[in-house]
C-alpha cells in the first residue's frame, strides 16, 4: 500500500467515524433540550416564542394604565394600585411592575451611552417625569416580572431565570430604532412596563412599543 492510499484510507476512516458520530447523535435525539445549564438558552428561546407575541404583548396592551392615571393611583395607594394593575417580582422587597402607556415630549436625551434613555414630559410642565429605556443595554427585569406567566419555580435556577429576562430585553432593544437627528422636542408614545417600589420612585419604563411622532 502506498503512502497516498494510506492517507486516503485514514482520511475516509476519520470522516466515516465523524459521520457515524453525527448520525448517532441525531438518532439519539434531535429535539431534546439538555436539562442542565447548556439547555438554558434553548429553553428560554422556546419560552420566548411561546409567550412574547402570543401572550406578553397582548397582556401589556390590555392591562396598561395611562401614565397620569397611574401616577395618581400610585400616589394615593401603591399597594391598592399594585394589586389592581401590577405584578410583583419574585421575592420580598420586589417592585410592583405596572403596565403603562402614554405619550410625552422628549425633554432629555442620554444617547452617548450603551444604556440610552429619553426623559419624557408627559404632563406638559416642561420637566421630565418619565424615563424611557432605549437600549442597547436595557437594565432591570421589568418585562419578565411584569407579566404573570414566568414563574421562578418553573426555572432550573436563578441563572436560567435571569437569562430569560436578558432574552426579553434583547428582543426589545433589537426592535427599537431611533429616528435620525436630535430627538429633543419630538413627541413619543410608548407602551411598556415600569417597576415601582414606592410612590416617590422615578418612573422608568422598559418599552415593548415606542413610536416617534413627526
Amino acid at each position: 500500500m502506498n503512502r497516498a492510499l494510506l492517507l486516503a484510507l485514514a482520511a475516509s476512516t476519520a470522516l466515516g467515524l465523524a459521520g457515524c458520530k453525527i448520525v448517532y447523535d441525531d438518532d439519539k435525539d434531535e429535539t431534546a433540550i439538555p436539562a442542565g445549564p447548556e439547555g438554558d438558552d434553548a429553553r428560554n428561546e422556546a419560552r420566548l416564542e411561546e409567550t412574547f407575541e402570543p401572550q406578553l404583548l397582548p397582556y401589556v396592551r390590555d392591562k396598561a394604565v395611562e401614565v397620569s392615571d397611574l401616577r395618581s393611583q400610585v400616589a394615593a395607594d401603591i399597594e391598592a394600585a399594585g394589586t389592581a394593575h401590577a405584578q410583583r417580582g419574585s421575592g420580598t422587597g420586589a417592585a410592583w411592575n405596572f403596565p403603562v402607556s402614554g405619550s410625552g415630549v422628549v425633554v432629555e436625551a442620554k444617547l452617548d451611552t450603551r444604556a440610552r434613555t429619553l426623559g419624557l414630559d408627559t404632563d406638559a410642565d416642561g420637566t421630565a417625569d418619565t424615563t424611557l429605556q432605549l437600549g442597547p443595554v436595557i437594565k432591570g427585569t421589568a418585562l419578565r416580572d411584569g407579566v404573570p406567566f414566568y414563574n421562578f419555580d418553573d426555572f432550573r435556577d436563578q441563572i436560567e431565570y435571569a437569562k430569560l429576562s436578558r432574552a426579553l430585553n434583547d428582543r426589545i432593544s433589537a426592535a427599537i430604532t431611533l429616528p435620525e437627528g436630535d430627538p429633543l422636542g419630538s413627541t413619543v408614545s410608548f407602551l411598556g412596563i415600569a417597576p415601582l417600589r414606592s410612590a416617590t420612585e422615578a418612573l422608568v419604563v422598559t418599552p415593548v412599543e415606542v413610536t416617534f411622532q413627526p
Partner: peptide
C-alpha cells in the same frame, strides 16, 4: 407561599 422565593439584593 411558593417554595422557591428569590430575595432581591440592594
Amino acid at each position: 407561599l411558593d417554595e422557591k422565593q428569590l430575595m432581591d439584593c440592594v
